[in-house]
């Protein structure tokens, strides 16, 4: 068993865990932050994406022990301080960028990471960036539209409906 300490959504947290504990398990089971989802076991689906020191990481692919001292943000930390939806979250609602909601936390975390490194991505850049996030409900159309909108770009070019 190992002790780990990290900051999650601005709060210092610690735990005593088995060395093999994945970061996703620590977040979900240790911290009971169940917004981070696990949709596959091969690091393909991206439902578990969180930010580790500002970078988008599939939390099922990282040991919790590797996150020692790190600054983690999960979907629970994405709303504005007054509790209202952030620009990206709001854009997902406005443009119907989610249906069942299971892939959504990972999508939002990936979208935030994309816009942090590329504030005005093209549609094609968005689609390529989301290669590691699988959505089975939306056909991605409205996710792409939401991210375009969140970046302040016109969505008129994204086929109307």
């Amino acid at each position: 068993m190992t002790d780990v300490t990290m900051t999650v959504n601005g709060k210092a947290v610690s735990g005593n865990i088995e060395g093999r504990t994945l970061l996703s398990d620590f977040i979900r089971e240790g911290l009971r932050l169940t917004g981070t989802h696990v949709g596959c076991d091969t690091s393909q689906c991206g439902a578990c994406v969180v930010h580790v020191d500002g970078k988008a990481v599939k939390s099922c692919t990282m040991l919790a022990a590797e996150a020692e001292g790190a600054d983690i943000t999960t979907i629970e930390g994405m709303a504005t301080p007054d509790g209202s939806l952030s620009v990206i979250q709001q854009a997902f609602q406005d443009h119907h960028g989610l249906q069942c909601g299971f892939c959504t936390p990972g999508m939002v975390m990936s979208a935030a990471a994309l816009l942090a490194e590329n504030p005005s991505p093209t549609e094609s850049e968005i689609r390529k960036y989301l290669e590691g996030n699988i959505c089975r409900c939306t056909g991605y159309h409205n996710i792409v539209k939401a991210i375009m909108a969140a970046s302040g770009q016109s969505v008129a070019g994204v086929a109307a409906e």
Binding site: L33, T34, G35, T36, E76, M78, F92, Q93, G101, T104
Partner: peptide, 14 residues
């Protein structure tokens, strides 16, 4: 959407 976008959905594994 509000609960799904803020990580407060309640799926069976939760």
């Amino acid at each position: 959407d509000v609960r799904f976008l803020t990580g407060t959905g309640n799926y069976t594994d939760d």
